[in-house]
Structure formats: C-alpha cells, structure tokens
Design a binder for these strands. Structure first.
Lengths: 196, 196, 196, 196
DNA sequence: TATTAAGCGAGACGGTACGTCACGTCTTAGG
DNA sequence: CCTAAGACGTGACGTACCGTCTCGCTTAATA
C-alpha cells in the first residue's frame, strides 16, 4: 500500500549522502556540520533530519553507500584469488571523496555511538564474506589445513594493508601485497606441523 | 635569562591532559568540548588555549603523554623478544581512561589536521624504534635474513593486533599473539628461498 | 510577495526591549550584558543579534519605544500650552524602569556610535515638533515676535529641566517650571526692543 | 613621616589619566578597557588598580583633572561678568581629548556608581562657586532682586549651553550666549513684579 | 475534482559551545 | 614598597550549529 502525501525525493537522499562524503573527506567528522551538508546538497536541514537521526548515522549510511562489496574471485588457486581481491582495494568511489580519509572518521564514530557500532559490525561481517568464501574453498581444495583459524588468516592478510592506511602511512603496492600473501600463506602452511 | 611574569602552573597542564583523556574516552573527539575539559580540570578555557591551539593538538599531547614507549627486551631470541613486547600491550594508563577508545579518535584527528598528522608521525616513528632494534639484532644473530624488509615484518606483526582493536573487534590474547608471531616469522624465513 | 521561512516572534521583540530598559535602568549601559538581556527576556542571544547589531542600537530602540511623543496642546494661550506640555514630563513608561536613569546612558551611547547618533538625532527632531508647533502658533497669534529664534526659545525652555535631571540634580516641580516659562517668555518678549 | 619602600611614580599617574581621557574620548566608557589604558600609558594593570578601584573612579579623576575651574571675573557689571564666564567654555584641555565626548560618559558613570555620584556632586558644587559669587555680587549691587532663586538663575544660564552640547547639537556661539544672558536677566528682572 | 497528508526550502527559535577578550588578582624577578 | 610582565579563574563577547518549529507551497493518493 502506497503512503499518502508527497513522496520523498530520492535525488535529495543521494545528494545528501554525496555531500556528506565530500565534507567528511574534507574536514573530518568533528568539523562536519548538518548546516554545511544541507547547504552543499541544496536541501533544508529538515530534509536531512527526516532521514537520519544523527551525524554518525548519516556518516554510516554515506560510508556504506560508498564502499562497494568486493568481488568474489574463483580462479581455483588461493594465491590467485587473493591477488585478485587485493587489486583495486581502496579505490575512491566518487570524485572529491578520499575514502581513506573517511574510513578513520567512520571508525571513530562507531567507537562512540552504540547504534552506529552495531550497524557497522553487521556491515563488516557482510563485507568479510567474499574472502571467507575464498578461504573456505581453499580448505576444500586442501590448500589450507582444515583446522586453520580462518578469521585469523583473514585478519593477517587484511590487517597490514589497513594498518598502513590508518596508522603507519607505509606503502601499499603490488610488491607489498604479493609478499604479504606469500608470507602469511607460507607461515600458516607450516603452522600445523609446528603443533600450535 | 629568567622569564618574566608569573610562570605557568604545571599542575594545570597535567590536569588538562588527564581530563582530556577521560572525556575523549567517554564521548569521543567529536563530542569533546573545551568547556567540559576546562570544567573537569578545574581550569579556565583561556588556560587551555594558552597551551594548545586546537582540540586536536590537545588530544595529541594527551595521547602521547598516556602511551608509554614499550620496553626493549633483549633475550637473545627473536621469538622471546617479540613475545615479551606483545605482553602488556594496550594496557590503560590511567583509571577512567580506555586507551583503545582514545586511539581511533587520535587517528581521526591526525587525518584531519596536518600539524597533528606531522607530530603524530614523528611520535609513531619514535615508538617503533624498540621493535626495529629487536628485529635488527635478530638480523645480526642470523635469525632473520639480511635482506628482509624490516618495516614490512614490523607491520605484519603489529597490524593484526591493531586491526582487531580498531576494525574487526576480534580477540587479542596470548594464543593469538603466539600464533601470529609464529606464522609471520616462519613465512618470512621461507620468503628469500621463494625469491621474492 | 509573501516572506519565506518562519516569521519572527513579535512578543520576543517586545520582551527584549522591556528587559533592556529594566537592566539599563538598574546597572547602566556599561554593565549591561547581552547575556543578561537574553536571560531576562527568556530569549536566546541569537534572537537579539538577529534584530540589533549592538548594545547601543538595542538601547536606542528600547528608549525610543519607551519615550512617548508629547501631546500637542492648543489652548489659545502660549503660557497655557507650555504649562500643559511641562506636565507629565519624565514619567516612567514601565514599572521597573527609571527613564531618567536610562536617558543619560542613551546620550552616552549616541556620542560613541555614529549610526545610533544619526537615529537619535532624527528621533529628537521628530520629538521637538509638538513644541515647535506650539511656538509657531504663538507667533501666528502675535504672542511671540515673528523674528524670534524658535530653536533658541525651545532650548531655553527645555534645557533647565533636562539639565537638572542630568547634571545638577536640582528640583523640577511646578513652581520651577512656572517661573521658568515666565522668565523665558518675558525675556524673549523684551528682546527685540533691545535690538539683539 | 615618609612612607617606606619605593615611592609611587607620579609620571605614571599622569600618564594613566591622560590615556584614560584619550580612550574615553575615542571609544566611550562602555568600550574602555583597563588593558588598553595600561597599554597606552605604558604601565601595568597593577599600577592602575593600586590607584583606582574601578573604571568609573578612574574616569572621574581623569575628568576632574581635565576640567579647569572657571575664572571668577569681577567687572562690576553682571552682564560683563557672565559674558566673560561664557568665553572659553568647553575648550579641550589636551590634544586628542574631546571633552564634550567625555562629559556624557562621565554623567552616565555618575548615574550608575554611587561613590562616583557623590564625588561628582561635590565637584559640581565646587565648580558652581564662581558663578554663584558673581550672582551674589550682582544682588549686592542691586542688579538682581534680593529674593531671586540664584540656583534657578544659574541653571537657566548654564543649562542651554550644556543642553546643546549633550542633547540637541545646536550651535553655541557668542550670538547665542549673548542673547541667552539678555533673555534670562531681563526675564528675571521682570519676575518679582509679576509676583511669582 | 476536491481534499488530505506528507514533503519541501526557508528561516526563526532556545540552547550550547566556540575561541577571544577583559576582568581583577596573584606570582614572579627586579628597582 | 613599587614596578612590568604575564598567568590565573571568571564570565561576557558575537558567531556558528544544534535539533526543533512554524511558514507558504508542492506533490501525490484518496474520497
């Protein structure tokens, strides 16, 4: 059953999300103002508050709309699947939006607002599925031992990239990701024999 | 030559830093107000602004004052050195301060304010020295190949812990850190033979 | 054309003017604070600044709203007209407002702020009209010589009253105003014969 | 008995008074700050507060130091005495000080601060003495009736000049003061015969 | 076709916090 | 004891945003 009254303008919704990403990218969450979002989106504040209850919720939605779910390759080789997944990681979704600047603001928001934290966790769980599937197929093929902690392997592979983005500003290029995959897979492969 | 005028009260400085850590820990950077810091520290806003030019600078100093530089163990074994370094990681420096809640706020601040970013980078570089020294001694002892990228090894070891704190909320206990060290060191050890 | 947006609350405007008069009456212009006006009027500071750009402008409007334009009597006799005009001079317009305490603050403000000075002068010119009319009718009736300087006569009549309010704290009662009118009119009457 | 310790610097006292007059002349009492006075006088704030307890007291002293007591002419003719007294009225005492801008600030201060009001009244009483003496000598010579209210005559003469300074911005030149004296003296002369 | 309900931009509203300035006091090192 | 310098807690400044609330108007579904 259709709702009565004038329907919401979906273009406004999109404009607000884009404006939010741009502004968070420019000035951060702390300096983000609803007035600025409204102004840049060409929308009134009421139109924003009709859709989101807080700056953090808005940022969450904006971020989720910008971060695409990774493809799930299936080349038959774990190393090739992983190399495919690391390609194109961290590309900016929109002109004027630096997603690597938005990400830490998103994390900071999730650490502060419990509702945002729950939604953020659910989104992360969903986003991890493709790599979990890749790893599970590798187990099925015998490329990984059956008793390996897949969450740990996942984190060992992903963490260094995110860490360099967020904390240490180190380079993240193909040379790095290739060595990273090799070290982790080799280490994990040796681990069961070491009885840990 | 002696400075003229009434000297600054060092107790006030300390009180402000502690109040800042407590409040960031409680409400985050975005909701942190200078008025609240002043009030909790029993100090006037002017006294804060006389010392720091922005909320971000203040948080930076507070965080640096709270994060102790890690010890630099020298047991003669790389594995034992690393195990020692991972022990006691992330302990809270003050009652009422959850440093793992403060850290992402600190990162978010550094991504927004260039001056803070520079000071943050310098601090991180300094903080990495002990583990770099541990790794260099391992190279000297022949436990690590001479041509290994020590920065990459460093990040492979540290990143998963920080990643679980910040992003995935996974567990970080002794079982995890032990396997982590084993996987990385084993993988790195195999790497040169793989000619990467 | 209709104005857009929520219209201003006229009750707030009135409340602010009354609060301003009360506070200036109590503590003077120098100690008047916008915070106190806002608080007493039950209004936010922004609501004040939306209407007036400075303390002085606010006082000007408050004062103008409080000072009623004098009646313009027309008894057929100059002496009777003047006596009527001097009656009820300086009555307080509101409970809690001592207009004789407000007036010097108003003058001080006008001497400092050029915009206020201009508006003040315009208001004074307007306010002088009734007595100027009374004097002109007296000229028409032959009670005053045609070549008399009406501005000077006006000032001679009004100045002593204001002077005693502001400067010398002398009494201003009916005996004083009656003698004042008599002396000035008699003196003016004699003047042309003295060829000045 | 001489006071112990370092004596006060009298030059500082003078510098403070001059700086106060200049600043009140420029920005008014409301915008006058002790910091600005200290800065312009080349003196520390403590040096000001050691001498005066408030802005109003300081202005009072500054104003009293600037307004010279009028001469007391004795020409043998009331009209000539008055004409002499009106000459040179309102001259500025210092370069950079507009005493007609300072005066209303002084009055405003006196209406707000009771201590200042008392000192101001005493000063005014003292300042009125020369003209009171002139008027009393005129009574002795028979130029004025013995039962005339000298305070009222005084105010009738002085008020229009002050009124034009403060309120109506009308001209105050020799033509005005001459006619003023003539009208008032003629009017007063006629008054007793009118049995008022 | 007319009514009704929600959405819309604009902008005022009572608040809170901003970063600055001035208050009057105090603490330092000297004169 | 006075001085200049300058830090201190307090509190007001005028501005910017908060999230809410009228306004007049627009846009569809319902009656």
């Amino acid at each position: 059953m259709a709702r009565r009254g004038r329907p919401r303008n979906e273009q406004s919704t999109t404009d607000i999300l884009v404006a939010t990403l741009e502004l968070v990218s420019e000035v951060g969450l702390s300096a983000l103002t609803m007035d600025a979002v409204a102004s840049r989106a060409g929308v009134s504040k009421a139109t924003i508050y009709r859709r989101w209850s807080s700056k953090e919720q808005l940022l969450l939605d904006a971020w989720m709309s910008a971060v695409r779910r990774p493809d799930e390759p299936d080349t038959g080789s774990l190393r090739d699947d992983l190399r495919a997944m690391f390609t194109g990681l961290g590309l900016d979704p929109l002109p004027g939006v630096d997603i690597q600047r938005v990400f830490p603001q998103m994390i900071a928001a999730a650490k502060v607002n419990d509702d945002v934290a729950a939604a953020y966790r659910a989104f992360i769980t969903e986003r991890r599925r493709p790599m979990q599937a890749v790893l599970r197929r590798a187990v099925a093929r015998g490329e990984l031992a059956a008793d390996v902690d897949l969450d740990l392997v996942h984190d060992l592979l992903v963490a260094p990239v995110v860490y360099r983005w967020l904390v240490s500003d180190g380079p993240v290029d193909e040379s790095v990701t290739t060595r990273l995959i090799e070290i982790v897979l080799t280490g994990v492969d040796a681990l069961p024999r070491l009885e840990v």
